[in-house]
Design a protein around this nucleic acid. Sequence first.
DNA 1: CCAGCGATTGAACAAGTGTTTAGTGTATGA
DNA 2: TCATACACTAAACACTTGTTCAATCGCTGG
Lengths: 225, 225
Amino acid sequence: MRLTAEDLTTRARIRDAAIGLFGRDGFGPATVRAVASAAGVSPGLVIHHFGSKAGLREACDQHVLAQTASQGREKTDPATARQLIQDYLNHPDQYADEIAYIRRSLGDESEAGDAFFDAVVRQTQDIIEAGIAAGTIRDFGDVRSTAVVVASNSLSMLMLGRHLSRALGADVTEPHGIGPELLRQLTIPALDIYTNGFYADSRFLDAARDALQQDTINQGREHAP
Amino acid sequence: MRLTAEDLTTRARIRDAAIGLFGRDGFGPATVRAVASAAGVSPGLVIHHFGSKAGLREACDQHVLAQTASQGREKTDPATARQLIQDYLNHPDQYADEIAYIRRSLGDESEAGDAFFDAVVRQTQDIIEAGIAAGTIRDFGDVRSTAVVVASNSLSMLMLGRHLSRALGADVTEPHGIGPELLRQLTIPALDIYTNGFYADSRFLDAARDALQQDTINQGREHAP
DNA sequence: CCAGCGATTGAACAAGTGTTTAGTGTATGA
DNA sequence: TCATACACTAAACACTTGTTCAATCGCTGG
């Protein structure tokens, strides 16, 4: 649940407007004047409150990070996770700005993006380890690398939401978000792969193992210029 | 094989410098002056050759798209694909600029990025259909959606390369590229999931099917404000 | 030989950028 | 009540941006 009313302090209003514009246009192209205009204040006031455009960004980073961290902490619990997804499916617009901002943070090189990605990997690894203990998830050799792969796959929906929408024929009114019907359309194929696998047998896996073995042996020769 | 020598026309040199800077800094932040300086020419000449900064970008889009299209066309053939990957593993630097540029194109909303994503999905779908016919890939209900999911997962390595490197402890000298040793480290877990699945049984898949069924029934009520 | 043409440059321009500054209210606390 | 502090604005500043323009340089065709 979020507060949507406009009983925010001016500083918070500016920050939220900045999150929206930074997420939509990127940190570079979004201007202080545009942020000020969106917040209904003068450009000077933005600087007065945040010192500089970089300071404004830092405040946005911290806020979005804190917001998502407080939601993500309980995500290991399946029931809470389900409720969170349900909440998003019912009110996707309330999360749109933050999601767009995170997408930009992951794309730019920013400390906030780094922290967010690391948090997702950490939680994924927790979930995997709990799942292995409970017998619901297969036991892997390298849990860490597996967690990175799974986290990366999950975040690809966030990074490529716009293209997923296009490819599956949804209306692209929302520039980048991923709507409820789209999420529904992708859930089954994704879970199907995660449950029954993608390849029919271990041919490719064995071939890759062989190739990597061979590549490691030949590494000194092949990598020489 | 690419030509690395400097026997390029000035126009091509400017274009290549622009691809490098657009990929590294983004289309907005990268300036005409920086491109001109990187190419060793005056800013006016950039405009003289391409009309405007937007024209320069269009030329970069077309060039990168043509470059990747010519390589991707034969990717359905497994042998060629393997050779392409080998080539990349041995000379990753030669592809770095184009990869960074594609990453930015996929993140911005650009026609080139759209075309690239669609091409990847199309080829993925071709590979899946050929694999199903050959018996190497499982037969899915919805090939199209599956192709979108697989393509999205594959491209996540491109979009999040920087974070994958960080998470797996590689040196982050290259800002976003994904190095050979990193690719080696991720191949086995990814193929393991694609071969043996991620979940131990179909519990999650069944639960999702039930949830979506129920959500569809309740959709009218739950989505109301 | 030379007229012409494209490549190329340096300087300038107008617009937009982040930021500063001086000034105006408007509270709050002594 | 008055002075201090703070939120806030309008205007200006210095700088960067994309783009234009006049003027060269170097070649090539007649």
